[in-house]
């Protein structure tokens, strides 16, 4: 059980001693039950921090935002920034460091172990018809405060899918850690949802994805929320291509556009496949893309597929070590090659 007071004290002390320039954490949002990300920079703000089942955001996104902000304002940061990181957040922070997006000394990781439970999937709660104003961890249950009183629900029933299949709920890379290491805990075998989907025959799979890609509205929410999608120029989005005073209209019109911006099925499909391939070996299954999708496209299946290929065919585990090679920039003599004629 994580003592919230410990988390607040840690943040307060570090800010008071001027060890970090800010702490990225969660606070209560204006939207009732849900938590929202916050960056606190003053010791007295530490009491805003919370830790409950609605802390599902991947905060490493804000390390990227912080880095971009520093680069754009040409500011210098002498102190590291602290982040409250769950097992998955810590892994994605490791991937960012592996890619030299920032250095280990630039970030202070306050690890929080997810222990016996994961985090909430809000959609599952809504399906159950519960309108809560508050939530809390309690052993293997989540306790929700509703207007009718307290309601105790086994975490398993409303937990996010990724947490059910999580292999590593303990943040291995950390400066300090709160909570116990319960890495052995696994409610579902990894890739359960993926295996269930793969039992379908190719025609049925196509029918499914055809429908999903047709629905995509190309709002780029999945890209915006992904800590790994940090490129300033994005190949899928021609509006992000650089424009200077010297860029002529001709040049703008004739730039290679691998993917058009129109939200047709073919373009959506190439967009999602490109994104999945760019995330191969980098995606650590925080599933933020699926959570923010306004039309509920099950993007996790695609990302999981790549993760499993990397794991089973190449023995690669994303977010395992800062110094290790990346998936597509390394190779083994034993890589599968039977498909090549």
């Amino acid at each position: 059980m994580i003592n919230l007071q410990d988390m607040r004290d840690t943040a307060r002390n570090m800010l008071a001693k001027n060890e970090v320039r800010g702490v990225i954490g969660y606070r209560r949002s204006t939207n009732g039950m849900l938590a929202e990300p916050v960056v606190i920079t003053k010791p007295e703000q530490a009491d805003e921090l919370i830790w409950d089942p609605t802390c599902f955001h991947n905060l490493s996104l804000y390390l990227v935002e912080d880095r971009k902000f520093l680069a754009h304002t040409r500011a210098k940061a002498d102190l590291p920034i602290a982040i409250i990181a769950k097992g998955c957040d810590a892994r994605s922070t490791v991937v960012l460091m592996q890619e030299n997006y920032f250095e280990r000394k630039d970030v202070y990781i306050i690890g929080v172990s997810c222990e016996g439970t994961g985090v909430l999937d809000e959609r599952k709660l809504v399906k159950k018809g519960i309108r809560a104003t508050n939530s809390a961890f309690d052993g293997d249950d989540f306790v929700f405060t509703t207007e009718q009183g307290e309601q105790r629900i086994p975490a398993r029933e409303v937990m996010a899918d990724r947490c059910l299949e999580c292999r590593e709920c303990f943040p291995k890379e950390h400066n300090i850690v709160l909570g116990e290491d319960k890495t052995g805990r696994q409610l579902d075998a990894p890739f359960t949802a993926l295996k269930r989907f793969e039992e379908l025959d190719p025609a049925a799979r196509w029918e499914f994805w055809d429908h999903q890609f047709e629905r995509c509205i190309r709002c780029f929410a999945c890209r915006s929320v992904c800590p790994m999608c940090y490129c300033d120029e994005c190949i899928v989005d021609s509006t992000s291509f650089p424009v200077t005073g010297q860029t002529t209209a001709d040049e703008k019109a004739n730039r290679v556009k691998w993917i058009e911006r129109s939200a047709t099925r073919a373009e959506n499909m190439t967009y999602h496949m490109t994104r999945v391939l760019h995330l191969a070996g980098r995606c650590i299954d925080c599933n933020e893309c699926e959570r923010v999708c306004p039309v509920n496209i099950p993007l996790r299946l695609l990302n999981n597929k790549m993760e499993r290929e990397a794991r089973e065919q190449f023995g690669y585990e994303p977010g395992a070590s800062i110094g290790g090679p990346s998936l597509t920039a390394s190779f083994l003599d034993t890589d599968p090659g039977k498909f090549i004629r």
Binding site: W206, D210, Q313, F314, F331, D335, G337, F339
Partner: peptide
């Protein structure tokens, strides 16, 4: 070989 393997698997996965 590595990259193409991933592409091939992904194309198969979405049902192409």
């Amino acid at each position: 070989r590595r990259k193409i393997h991933l592409v091939k698997e992904l194309l198969g996965f979405v049902g192409i």
